[in-house]
Design a protein around this nucleic acid. Sequence first.
DNA 1: GGGTGCATGTAATGGGTTACATGATTCT
DNA 2: AGAATCATGTAACCCATTACATGCACCC
Lengths: 201, 201
Amino acid sequence: MAKRSSSSMEVLLGMLAIEPMSGYDLGMTIRSSVGYFWNESYGQIYPNLKRLAAAGLVNSKTERHKGKPDRRVYSITKKGRERLKSWLSVEPQPEIPRNEMLLKLFFGEHVPAEVPMGYVEREAEVCRALLGFLEREAREGIDKNRHYPGAPYWRMAVRFGELEMRAHLLWADETLVELKKMAGKKRNHGRTKKEKSHAGR
Amino acid sequence: MAKRSSSSMEVLLGMLAIEPMSGYDLGMTIRSSVGYFWNESYGQIYPNLKRLAAAGLVNSKTERHKGKPDRRVYSITKKGRERLKSWLSVEPQPEIPRNEMLLKLFFGEHVPAEVPMGYVEREAEVCRALLGFLEREAREGIDKNRHYPGAPYWRMAVRFGELEMRAHLLWADETLVELKKMAGKKRNHGRTKKEKSHAGR
DNA sequence: GGGTGCATGTAATGGGTTACATGATTCT
DNA sequence: AGAATCATGTAACCCATTACATGCACCC
């Protein structure tokens, strides 16, 4: 029951509802707008565009340019907008995404505390980078289009990312303190086990 | 290249490093311990146990019980522990999980503001439920095993969930206020700014 | 008699990434 | 000369969920 046909087609419809685009553009646009919570690979985009076209949800026309490859530009149809709306009307089912970092951390006892410390430091780095992107590029990109009726929703999504990243950073700080304590204890207890300190990078 | 063989086998090794278990137990244990950030279905667990056994990373013996079906109980081998450690030594690569709720919210303009409000309310509900589980059941479960060397790591993972859920709840509150304003404006053509203290649910 | 829990497994299906294949132009 | 960007697509493969198949015991 309950086909959970994932939203890989609908994200294309949604983007094409903003403006007509080629498959390549869709990839770029998705990456730079919703990329921090939704990715699509070209291996999905191109076949899905064909399926959408076959279903009459998008139209395509080929544009020729000198000096550049031909572009197949897609635009959403009335039927496509209807489909988009009916997809939006179905409440998203809550999902539990897998988090490999947490999984490894969970089993951290089997490995010297420096290793989990590495996980957490890396996590913090990634969060700082993403937070920077959200607070600068993403905010500015939305501000440039602040008249567009979707802008308030874009801001909400960005805000979600900001708050989540800040929570992760808070956690990382707290957790690093804890891990350092643990590493310190292990070191002073053991009879000076000479370990290779390949912690740095 | 870089086979990103996902961690579906390693989670089994990790759990079996705590104590020997059957496939059925593994499913239950995973759900109730790391289930808020890692799920495994039986369709993965049973075939993967066979593969682990074939690779000599786990042993199995069949237990017979009257009144209950036979159980195939698996235990981790020395080789399995080695494998677990070498998996833990590889830093988890940062991943960007898909978030369908955010995706639908991002395209919220195409639908009356009440619809995205539904998404956010549902999100808040789920977060409250999970937060309750983490602060009660999960914490207590760890406290019962506080002597186990893995306990500190389990606490860190739980803490991650708590902070994340609180961030999501904060966001949900903030976002609902915003969405109510938007719905209000749409309704009375942006005339009165009077807010209704209780928007219908 | 029927639902629930224990218990193991396979098959069908669907979803998604990555590698491969091609090829022109522009930038360094 | 070689790398990067623009541009489209297919094929192989991997991963994962779900449905199906089986069956006993216990409780209501």
